[in-house]
């Protein structure tokens, strides 16, 4: 019995598998029956066949016989700490053990706290416009994370403060401008890490 031809849509869906000979017999016959009566689909099938045939020019190659020894030598040469840390890392185990949501929610919580700290904190004193809208603690937090954290998004405005300006309160700048520049070493800085946020605020004022 002659198979019922497929529709154009169905044929197009199965055409690649048909050309590559991966279809079941029943499907293949349905496609073939369609191609016999549909010139556009048949032409397309011929083009696909031509392209596929052209790819047969590349034969398979065997890898060199001593290749595995090379792999073992490379593994031998690896630094030991690279292998010790990775598989036993509790953080990785947590991530792999279905605890991803814990990590995700932690990051989200940290982001919320960070944003809450970095938004407007009304101040009563008459500070310069650039510092008035910045929470020094947030600035301290930001400083430890370095550049590239969300706030430095090239000119987006948050509460009147151009995000690029937050950079003025990075730790490195503080050390350079308010501490080390005066001839002190890092150990002689006038503030302890605990009061760093306050010191930044004072320095900014």
């Amino acid at each position: 019995m002659r198979p019922k031809p497929f529709s154009c849509k169905r044929t197009q869906k199965l055409l690649d598998d048909h050309v590559d000979g991966l279809l079941r017999t029943a499907d293949s016959e349905g496609v073939r029956a369609h191609l016999e009566q549909c010139t556009p689909c048949d032409t397309e099938a011929a083009a696909l066949r031509a392209a596929t045939a052209s790819l047969s020019v590349w034969g398979d190659l065997e890898p060199p016989p001593d290749c595995f020894e090379g792999i073992l030598a490379r593994i031998e040469a690896l630094p030991p700490d690279l292998l010790e840390s990775a598989p036993h890392s509790p953080a990785l185990r947590l991530l792999r053990g279905g605890g991803r949501w814990v990590a995700t929610s932690s990051v989200a919580a940290a982001a919320v706290v960070f944003l809450a700290l970095s938004v407007t904190t009304p101040t009563e004193h008459d500070a310069p416009a650039r510092t008035r809208h910045t929470n020094p603690v947030a600035a301290g937090l930001l400083s430890s994370t370095g550049p590239g954290l969300g706030l430095r998004t090239n000119g987006l405005r948050t509460n009147g403060l151009r995000t690029g300006e937050v950079r003025a309160y990075r730790v490195d700048d503080f050390l350079r401008n308010d501490g080390l520049r005066r001839g002190r070493t890092r150990n002689e800085l006038p503030v302890s890490p605990a009061s760093f946020g306050d010191a930044l605020g004072a320095g900014a004022r």
Binding site: P63, C67, G70, I71, R74, I75, L78, L82, L83, A86, P87, L92, R96
Partner: peptide
């Protein structure tokens, strides 16, 4: 090819 297996070894986790 060698680097593929070294990566697979070091990042098996």
């Amino acid at each position: 090819l060698q680097e593929t297996f070294v990566r697979a070894y070091t990042r098996a986790e």
